[in-house]
Design a protein around this nucleic acid. Structure first.
Lengths: 190, 190
DNA sequence: TCGTAATTTCACAAATTATTGAAAATTAGA
DNA sequence: TCTAATTTTCAATAATTTGTGAAATTACGA
């Protein structure tokens, strides 16, 4: 890796190795890592040069990263080359990634399950199979609408919620109590 | 696919197609789908027969599924073959999967980032790179400890939390008010 | 301990995916 | 419109992953 400090080189190499586990390939992982730690937008040639990949490989990798919304295209005045950068806000990155994964990895399954719910089971085994699919469907549906909701929270609220961790339970319990007090009051018990 | 009703066959085929997106291969996806919808534990021969895979392929697939904790090994009295089934509770499946993904896909990156935090940046660009890694580290750390916490909640509490969706914000705000009342009381303002 | 049923390993074939260099297409400005 | 810089496509080939059947190993019951 041309011109990379040991710190960045280590980071880039790690993303290359992990790439396959994350469902992107080595090259794409490395390109992303390089862009992520770069303090200025990079063009394809700079990337090809730094990582010693062929120019076309970089082009394909950048397209892939754009399709994942992991990199943003930027134009620099007086330069017709395309420059790429990662969003500054890591929460934004996280959300983009989650949304994209959902679209590709979850939604198709939800549709399939919905279709399966509509069929009439032919026999006992089929009936069981359908009930299992229903359980799966409910869980996925619940998690993904939850995700939609949470995604709309501001980063601050979200971070606060996360820092609360398991103490949300206490809050939930507290809410219950407040609600029941409210009900009792409304019923004229107090 | 031998002996599969159209309903199950559709489900199995879908898992095969999605497998690669989910980071498992087609065969493994299909084996899992079959086990998931089956109303009784299955042995390797039954699976090989139903899906028309080679016996050894099934053996490898089952090992893979076990390593993901997606299937459980069961022994049936009076039969020395190994039988496999998926956990009944879909929440348990979800949790196992999430835990395993975290272990494989997140933890290694956390370690790498932690190590990178300890290095002394050599120049300006390096300094920026390290600050980016720090942002990433904080986000991942926060999400994963949050996940640890949430995972400990009972399925009921968890489901309730999820159903609340974005209205958790209201609850958080409410908690803030209560807390400030508490503080005022403690300070003898009331 | 032996014989057998069941599972795993292994070496190879097949299929898929990644990478490249060169050629084609696109684009912005002269 | 033409030119030169830049990006994309394409066909080939390299590398990796997946799937198989046969052989080896393991585990069980008599």
């Amino acid at each position: 890796m041309q011109n990379l400090t040991p710190l960045s080189a280590q980071f880039v190499a790690h993303f290359g190795e992990m790439g396959s586990r994350w469902g992107i390939n080595r090259t794409v992982g490395q390109i992303y890592a390089l862009i992520f730690v770069s303090d200025k937008p990079l063009n394809a040639d700079e990337i090809a040069d730094a990582l010693e990949f062929s120019r076309s490989n970089v082009s394909i990798g950048l397209k892939e990263l754009q399709s994942w919304r992991l990199v943003k295209l930027r134009h620099i005045a007086g330069d017709r080359r395309e420059y790429f950068e990662a969003p500054q806000d890591v929460w934004e990155i996280f959300k983009n990634l989650a949304e994209e994964r959902r679209r590709r990895e979850i939604d198709p399954t939800l549709s399939m399950l919905r279709a399966a719910m509509l069929e009439t089971p032919g026999n006992e085994a089929d009936q069981y199979a359908q009930s299992r699919m229903k359980q799966m469907h409910e869980l996925i549906e619940l998690s993904s609408t939850w995700f939609d909701d949470v995604q709309r929270l501001s980063p601050e609220t979200l971070a606060r919620l996360m820092r609360m961790g398991s103490s949300v339970k206490t809050v939930l319990d507290m809410t219950d109590k407040l609600k029941s007090v409210g009900r009792r009051k409304a019923a004229g018990e107090e």
